[in-house]
Design a binder for these strands. Structure first.
Length: 473
RNA sequence: GGCGCCGUGGCCAAGUGGUAAGGCGGCAGACUGCAAAUCUGCUAUUCGUCGGUUCGAUUCCGACCGGCGCCUCCA
């Protein structure tokens, strides 16, 4: 088996990776806060994690991925308050949208999607443990905080020790009850709106709710054990979220929280980070309505390495749409009976083998999507050329099909062919019959007229030896 | 202000201390009645700028310019 390497944020290096037990990768991926549908920027990270789990599986490991759904937090409570709802009334529909978008983008289902509100006992237990260990305290405001000063390793992931806080950047708000301004909340004492919206639970420290960072630690350790193999998320989570997760978890267990940390870079739009507050978000729903297929969107995301910023633009998206069209045409050609009947050549097999080897090598080297795509496109070019030769070797075609399936099993960028409804298909066939007659009569003006008619309805036709294929654009 | 990332052809984007993958687009040719699809050829002597190290740098070092992010809720 080839070496599998990943960039580890902890060491800032690309290093060999393997699960601790040699068989199962226990992977935790920070999921969405479900108060609003996730935008493409969020999904870039989820897409990177989808690529990760597929490549891990390709490498031969079992993947156990957990992605949390944060269904209790300030924004959710605020929204619930505004709309006179409970938090679950706010989050339930958003969770549905999340899964619908996820499926549209062909993101494989994780093994578990724990909701924060379903793990309150585990969170309370974790806080209790931290208090017993003397690294957490209840302040005058009733909330429980983590005492950063008691955890010397704090800041290792984000290299806090090498940074200095911008004067005035961290304005010490009204948190006078905290021992240290940087201490973060483990358990937030309930306020009136928390009670009204159903965002409050009993605890040894009174009514309250869990802090955001705590949720992930508690759920990750409950579902995956004290030490994870891999923890992924967007680059913005490094500080403070992941830093705080490490502090809480390691202070409680004395064990490393995650062996490896991976972070995906941002998706930008118009040169700025895609974010709701910037007002430049693209939703999956919107992209879908603009007729960008899952295949095109996946191509767009995977065509840039996950650790490099990616700028969303109309042109780039259009380029991906075209690129993926080519992939789809090749896939259809390979699958067709005509192609099988015509057969392939030894060189087709060679092209297929090389493509698989190159794509896998690229993917195993820190998830290099762009190189894997390059290998695929090289295969398409050579494959088409060899198929043009009609070599007669059916086995070669089978090998090529298998190669494409293997590569596309990871990238998943063959677009779906939109089926024409029955009436349209019937009409198209009638037009094609009429055109055929016109061509036989060498009435090309009429044949072209019919073709234009079809084109105006979004139907593209391709004449090839003896037969005419049509497809919807 | 601190920490970090990025700057490769018209657009997107890999990559390496030894002379630039791939996609989109464009041009020309083959095929076609004409197209479409496909194939072939061409489309960066050059990798932000200026220095340095080296036999040799796009790749290492330094400075500068430009863009972005984190330091505050955040994929």
């Amino acid at each position: 088996m080839p070496d599998f390497r990943l960039y580890n944020t902890l060491t800032r290096q690309v290093e060999p990776f393997a699960p601790a037990d040699g068989t199962t990768v226990r992977m935790y991926t920070c999921g969405p806060t479900v108060y609003n549908p996730a935008h493409l920027g969020n999904f870039r990270t989820f897409l990177f994690e989808d690529l990760m789990r597929r490549v891990l599986a390709l490498r031969g490991w079992t993947v156990h991925q957990v992605m949390n759904l944060t269904d209790v937090d300030d924004k959710i409570i605020t929204r619930a308050r505004e709309q006179g709802k409970t938090i679950s009334e706010v989050t339930e529909p958003v969770i549905e949208v999340f899964h619908r978008d996820r499926e549209y983008l062909r993101i494989q289902r994780a093994e578990a999607y724990p909701r924060a509100t379903a793990f309150i006992p585990q969170m309370v237990a974790l806080v209790q443990r931290l208090i017993e260990r003397g690294v957490a305290y209840q302040a005058d405001d009733g909330s429980v905080y983590f005492a950063i000063a008691k955890f010397p390793a704090y800041g290792r992931l984000s290299r806090l020790d090498t940074r200095e806080i911008k004067p005035g950047a961290r304005v010490i708000q009204d948190d006078y009850s905290k021992e240290n301004a940087q201490d973060f909340a483990l358990w937030k004492a309930a306020k009136e709106e928390d009670e009204i919206t159903g965002a409050s639970w009993d605890s040894p420290w009174g009514r309250g709710r869990p802090g955001w960072h705590l949720e992930c630690s508690a759920m990750a350790m409950d579902l995956l054990g004290d030490t994870l193999d891999l923890h992924c998320g967007g680059i913005d989570l490094i500080f403070p979220h992941h830093e705080d997760e490490i502090a809480q978890s390691e202070a409680a267990t004395g064990q490393p929280f995650s062996r490896v940390w991976c972070h995906g870079a941002f998706l930008l739009t118009e040169g700025a980070k895609m974010a709701k507050r910037v007002g430049n978000v693209s939703t999956v729903q919107g992209l879908r309505e603009a007729r960008f297929s899952a295949a095109a969107l996946r191509h767009f995301v995977f065509n840039t390495h996950y650790r490099k910023e990616l700028n969303l633009s109309e042109e780039a998206l259009a380029a991906s749409r075209q690129a993926v069209r080519r992939v789809g045409d090749f896939a259809e050609r390979l699958r067709s009976d005509t192609t099988m009947a015509l057969g392939g050549t030894p060189a087709l097999v060679q092209a297929a083998d090389e493509a698989v080897a190159q794509a896998e090598a690229a993917l195993f080297d820190d998830l290099n999507g762009p190189e894997a795509l390059a290998a695929l496109f090289e295969f398409i070019r050579r494959g088409n050329a060899e198929l043009d030769r009609k070599g007669g070797d059916r086995t070669a075609v089978e090998r090529a099909r298998a190669a494409l399936d293997r590569i596309d099993g990871i990238l998943d960028i063959v677009p779906d062919r939109e089926p024409a409804d029955e009436g349209l298909a019937e009409w198209i066939e009638e037009q094609l019959a009429a055109r055929r007659a016109a061509r036989i009569a060498r009435d090309f003006a009429e044949a072209d007229r019919i073709r234009h008619e079809l084109t105006s309805r979004g139907v593209t036709i391709e004449d090839s030896a003896g037969e005419t294929h049509w497809k919807l654009d």
